[in-house]
Computed example of a mutant assay.
Amino acid sequence: MDPLSSRLTTAAIWVGGSDIELRQVEIPDLADGETLVRVRLATVCGSDLHTVTGRRSGACPSILGHEAVGEVVAVGAATTAVVGQRVIWSVTVTCGKCARCRSGRTAKCESVRKVGHEPFHGDWPLSGAYAQHIILPRGTTIAVVPPDLPDAVAAPAACATATVMATIDAAGDLRGRRVLVVGAGMLGLTAVAACAEAGAEVQAVDIDPDRLTTAHRFGATTADTDPVDVAIDYTGSASAIDAALRRLDIGGVLVLAGSVAPTPPLPVDPETLVRRWLTITGVHNYEPRHLRRAVDFLVRTVREYPWDEVVAEPVALTQLGAALHRPPIGILRTAVAPRL
């Protein structure tokens, strides 16, 4: 049963540049496998900032936003979600049937669709989190949020925290390893804490001294020039990646997660890779298990690290345009509460 008193919801439509239009949007009847969620809080991912500034292309007009937490208010047939649950959901919507999905690479599903990336005038207009409601199609991974996890801590799990879990998977066992985290934004900060929890000695580098100060509160030590066993890059900067690669010790692993836009080529000497037994791998998006691990990780560390302090007090949808800019000093995520 759908408990909605109205079939209309308010959504912030991105129409180009930093321009946002608030519109009343009809909530359609749910198809089999679909879930309707009332958005409680959405955080502004760096990729959305890249979209509105033109650094990357995106469907326009559209409803942006893919880091969020909400409450299930209605479900279609053959849906496992339960009305009343507080949940987060995956960025990717997958078919589960293609060769990539069957091989465990659902993030690269041959027909993948993405929350907060779809055209408003397509067949899935309520696809982004900068709205009072979002529809999650069949193929979306949904994770229940425990009561003791605040909205501001849970929302970034849907992208930043889950992506970090995927990069740690790619890095391998970190116990007793020397890890270099390149970039101390939300992903880097999360990686610092996750690597420290995994038993690693963690160093962090960033061009922003304020972010480095925050990283130290989450378990980072001061970076130096000593060799490291693992380097994880969240910046996408060719020069930063080159510097990290040069620091890898014998058998070292370099995980790239920030290279999601064109950059200058990275010079790599094949002989160096061979003689030093180095591994370079990339991670883009994540698998369902990583979303669940993200929630578990935050539950374990919610009282150990000040996660809520790096997320700004939420603003209303009417102020979304102003929120789509780099956060103020000391803040790594701005936030929007669509029902304010």
Rank of each mutant, 00 (worst) to 15 (best):
R339A: 12
D224N: 13
D151P: 02
S103E: 08
V164M: 06
I27P: 14
A166V: 06
R86M: 05
V112A: 11
A131R: 03
R138A: 15
S127G: 12
L136A: 03
V299M: 05
L245C: 01
E309Q: 15
R55M: 12
C101S: 13
A166Y: 00
G70A: 07
L245H: 04
R247I: 00
F297C: 11
R246C: 03
R105A: 14
L317N: 01
F218P: 03
R300E: 14
P125Q: 12
A171L: 09
R38M: 11
S18D: 12
L266C: 14
A99F: 09
H66D: 11
R138S: 12
A42V: 05
L254M: 13
A223P: 08
A194G: 09
W14Q: 00
S127F: 03
A158L: 10
A152W: 00
G183A: 13
P119E: 09
V299F: 04
V268W: 08
G251A: 05
V87Y: 06
A231E: 00
D229S: 10
A170Q: 13
I13M: 10
L317K: 08
A238D: 05
D29R: 14
V15E: 10
A81S: 15
A231H: 05
T281N: 01
S18V: 09
D233R: 03
D169Y: 07
T43R: 01
G199L: 08
F297M: 05
T80G: 15
R138V: 14
T272E: 07
Q85P: 03
W14T: 02
G176S: 02
A200P: 07
T235W: 00
A322W: 11
T79Q: 08
R175I: 11
G128M: 13
